[in-house]
Design a protein around this nucleic acid. Sequence first.
DNA 1: TCTATTATTGCATATTTATACAGATATTTC
DNA 2: GAAATATCTGTATAAATATGCAATAATAGA
Lengths: 150, 150
Amino acid sequence: MKKYARQSKILELINERDIETQEDLALALKDLGIDVTQATISRDIKELRLIKVTSKTGKYKYGTIEESQNSISDRLVRIFKNSIVSIDAAMNIVVIRTIPGAAQICGSAIDSLQIAEVGGSIAGDDTVFVAVRSLDAVQDIIDNLYGLIN
Amino acid sequence: MKKYARQSKILELINERDIETQEDLALALKDLGIDVTQATISRDIKELRLIKVTSKTGKYKYGTIEESQNSISDRLVRIFKNSIVSIDAAMNIVVIRTIPGAAQICGSAIDSLQIAEVGGSIAGDDTVFVAVRSLDAVQDIIDNLYGLIN
DNA sequence: TCTATTATTGCATATTTATACAGATATTTC
DNA sequence: GAAATATCTGTATAAATATGCAATAATAGA
């Protein structure tokens, strides 16, 4: 039973270098004396729950969910960058205008930031209201959001 | 420019139901009045960094890295289940025997558990030594590991 | 040990996904 | 506004991945 030894090697390989395809992985394994087909690797990848992620170069590569963690905020930033039209305030409400249809996702992005001073948010189609706990914190939060964009 | 509204919808869709393929996603979007081809969705998925994960039913589905977080420990458990042969102790060292070649991965799995009483671990080919800070904690840790397996 | 059951894998291929290219839209610059 | 530049998308297809099936190997039970 050498399946698990192989899967262990697979994990090592994808950690130490960029593996773009299952075919590549098969070749790398062959170098280590492990000879299997792409089909088997497809099954291994399913079992190991490996995922295809974009590497720094924009290419796809295989990785684990763990190591992809840090790219989460990346995604939020991208969402903001791409959809926020303006950020403003009315008393303790931060008003964010987005391109049409993107308010919901911006809202949940803000929620996921878990900012202490944010009480909650509500999103329509192209507008998000963010309720801030104190007037003092409003400008900070706005600065923060702008910071993400730039 | 409705790309981001569409991407926002995509995120909603994959959160509320299991979407198995990009083709499926295209159909679901069409129901919402958004008409795009699989090619565009492939690009959206790359931009949103969505991943293909196995759903409860064993099928593939699209998801976000965030929501897949909880499946991490899952993977570790699977690794243990699949590769641990025995767990024993010698003084303050927990000795784990694994199937050949799997010790490295078991070692890093244990490291990733971040157990306070574990000082560190070292792995050969089929054996892992886990250094425990106190004799008192040894049995706890062993129980813990067995707990994972059963 | 022999047989039955289950797990693993390759082969062939269907299915799914990514992308080169070109045309269409939008954005910026002058 | 026109030209230049960049962004977005569909088409067609190449590339990559998943899987039904059959063969083989491992495991369990009598």
